[in-house]
Design a protein around this nucleic acid. Sequence first.
RNA 1: GCCAGGGUAGCUCAAUGGUAGAGCAGAUUCUUCAUAAGGAUAAGGUUUGUGGGUCCGAAUCCCACCCCUGGCACCA
Length: 472
Amino acid sequence: MSTKKYYITTTIPYVNAEPHIGFALEIVQADVLARYHRLLGEDVFHNFGADEHGVKIYRKAQELGNDPQEYCDEYAAKFDALKQTLNLDYDNFIRTTDSKHIAAAQEFWRKCLANGDIYKKNYKIKYCVGCELEKTDSELVDGKCEFHSSLELEIYEEENYFFRFSKYQKPLLEFYEKNPNFVVPEGKYNEIKEFVKRGLDDFSVSRLKKKMPWGVDIPDDPDQVMYVWFDALVNYISALGWPKDEKKFKEFWPGIQTAGKDNLRQQTAIWQAMLLSAGLPNTKQVFIHGFITVNGQKISKSAGTAIAPNEITDKYGTDALRYYLLAKVHPWEDSDFTWQKFNETYNADLANGLGNLIARVAKLAEKVAQFDPSTSSGQAAEQNKFLDEFRFDEAIKIIWERISGLDKQIEKDQPWKLEQDKLEDVLKNYVDAIRKIATGLQPFLPETAEKILKQFAGPKIKSEASLFPRIK
RNA sequence: GCCAGGGUAGCUCAAUGGUAGAGCAGAUUCUUCAUAAGGAUAAGGUUUGUGGGUCCGAAUCCCACCCCUGGCACCA
């Protein structure tokens, strides 16, 4: 029997801003799942990357006087650097400006076209001369531009390609009914079902090249490029080598996707309709996470609430941030970050809890000649159950209950008063317990888990520097 | 406006009909192997947004109202 395959991919961030801790949440959650399945012995493919086309990036590059590609190179590198900052183990960093991805997006387009789902249509756009921008209906206030209410909007017509989204209302609803766990959490599953039930309109999937050239060329049409969403969504399968590497694609697809709640519709409806159109299997499951607020405010660069992951990791280490994101942030509800809460958590759980326990047992263990080097391995079943439900917080809580349990046991035994042979007995139990704790910690805090397992590997165990020095 | 979710101890949350619980913070105390860390104990909610109702009994069900969050498509 071949090894079980597991594919997990995050959404790929749009590279028009620097990474912040809100995005770190998604990629750390995905990283835990990838590591967890690797530890189960599965063959894992973990994808991450950058979404690089579209008008916003084009304009931003223009403002900076840069070539769009140079701009994307610079920003994609910033996201790829999260691999070190957050200690991520992804296998692939896809960029939507890669030639392989572009070819895949074009092939995907051809499939939808061949299936009759892409057609040309005159499209009326509303244009505000004051802003020099197109306006969508949701941006309008009383039918006028919110910033220039004295100006009438101008109506332009342009011919775009449209995707026959409306055709997929029924197939999508059937798919949802057949796969009640397709979207986690349930609330988001209901939300997307309701959205699709209300009816779907076809939407435009191209832009005129003369207005906005920064996109994937449409096959056999020199005048238009793909609308950024259409090409970006294809990354989940182009990352697997589709359409060329058929073997890899068949092995790993369908996979698991993670996305923020702002991405619900794109991932669970639009992308799924596109897959149906192209005749490809739907995503297995989409996990929708919540948002992080900072001091109760939305994360926003202009409001100064954006915290870069390395602001935290440079000072307190990667695992301190990972712990906060996994244990103190609800997997799918919005959660608040404050430095005060971060410091409290760090001291209570990492310095006083885990770090101190390791230090006290290591010190006691120095008095014992040697330990059996055999380690207990394997993840605890109860922990796995929570991970299968994306309850990172509950899963990690189980480890902290063991930490607290061992602290109580030590207090009860009072090993510092014991004779040498009795001391050895109790310490062997402690060392086993620590190894078990560290093993459980592996998907969550990989660096710390590794350090502990090394320190407690035996036969000789020595005390070492604090894992998490207390914050004064 | 419509739809969904939520308002429970200082903070973060748990408990969906049967005497409101946990963690953190704060208090007292014991201990010393440890990063003044760890253990124990007590306290903490005028009884769970407000006002009604059903029931022997409601945080939990029903009605009304107040407040918060999200969604109601082409911004990614």
